[in-house]
């Protein structure tokens, strides 16, 4: 039995005439401890897919099985890092994390929980900012808080929706390493949504492209057989890396072109002759 299983998932938004089928025929299996990345164009339905897995959305048809049990609701076993951080702006960094920890470990004493908050805030190097509000933080710092909040709940599986999408390349690299570090410590299962192929290759065991929608579906998977811990600079010379990277990019380019031709609708202009109002 696979750890996570998506069987023939379809997801439609809206009803009747103005309904759109965003996801079509999605099939995916993940084993425990695996790190899978899904790459896709913007608007292709990545967030929708993530919300189906974490239980915020229900598929229109098909089923999501987590450890063999259908997902009908959110669960503390699956931690989520949202695309837009989703920190509560009226709480400080510490309070944001504390709120999550308190829900995840309702029986622990306040002291133990506070220790845990401090530990995870420290882990993402935000100890000096623990009493600041999200508004006072930079985008990268907010993202770290979101990471700390998700991890502090100690989920079995961690689902990340473009967690580093809004960051600059340097910060991105640092946070990638931090996430990998935390993941490798006790080999949680991880699903990473990204729009950056290099990020996927650096972090994941498998990369699966999401063909852009409407009717988005998963493409063929690409295995990354590069030993961990991976080294970014050394990887650039790795023939395996080059090959996989080129293959994925070629595939994405192809479907990108396909998408372009599909969307090239010809607009017929109405025939109008300018009228002269002066005469």
């Amino acid at each position: 039995m696979a750890y996570l299983e998506l069987n023939n998932i379809y997801k439609t938004y809206g009803e009747g005439e103005n309904s759109t089928e965003v996801l079509s025929n999605i099939n995916l299996t993940m084993e425990e401890g695996e790190f899978v990345a899904i790459v896709g164009f913007t608007g292709s339905g990545k967030t929708t897919l993530v919300n189906l897995i974490n239980g915020l959305l229900q598929p229109t048809s098909g089923e999501v099985l987590f450890k063999g049990v259908p997902v009908t609701d959110t669960s503390h076993e699956r931690g989520v890092i949202f695309q837009n951080y989703s920190l509560l702006p009226w709480l400080t960094v510490g309070q944001n994390v504390y709120m999550a920890v308190k829900e995840a470990f309702p029986k622990e004493s306040k002291k133990v929980l506070m220790e845990r908050v401090k530990e995870y805030v420290g882990m993402v190097n935000l100890s000096p900012a623990i009493n600041k509000r999200p508004k006072e933080l930079s985008g990268g710092m907010r993202q770290r808080v979101a990471v700390a909040r998700a991890l502090a709940m100690n989920p079995e599986m961690i689902i990340m929706d473009e967690p580093l999408g809004a960051l600059d390349a340097l910060t991105r690299g640092n946070l990638q390493d931090e996430i990998l570090n935390i993941w490798s410590q006790d080999k949680r299962t991880a699903l990473l949504i990204t729009n950056d192929v290099d990020e996927g290759i650096y972090m994941a065991d498998r990369i699966i492209p999401l063909k852009p929608g409407p009717n988005a579906t998963l493409g063929p998977e690409f295995k990354i057989d590069i030993e961990r811990p991976r080294d970014k600079t050394a990887m650039n010379d790795n023939p395996e890396y080059k090959k996989t990277r080129n293959a994925i990019i070629e595939y994405l380019m192809d479907i990108g072109d396909e998408r372009k031709t599909i969307s090239e609708v010809e607009y017929k202009l109405p025939e109008l002759t300018p009228k002269s109002f002066v005469a």
Binding site: G55, L56, F82
Partner: peptide, 16 residues
């Protein structure tokens, strides 16, 4: 909606 999603993912009770 983001805040509601957070509440759902953290599994806050109605009161909370």
């Amino acid at each position: 909606k983001d805040y509601i999603n957070v509440a759902k993912v953290l599994k806050l009770g109605t009161f909370q």
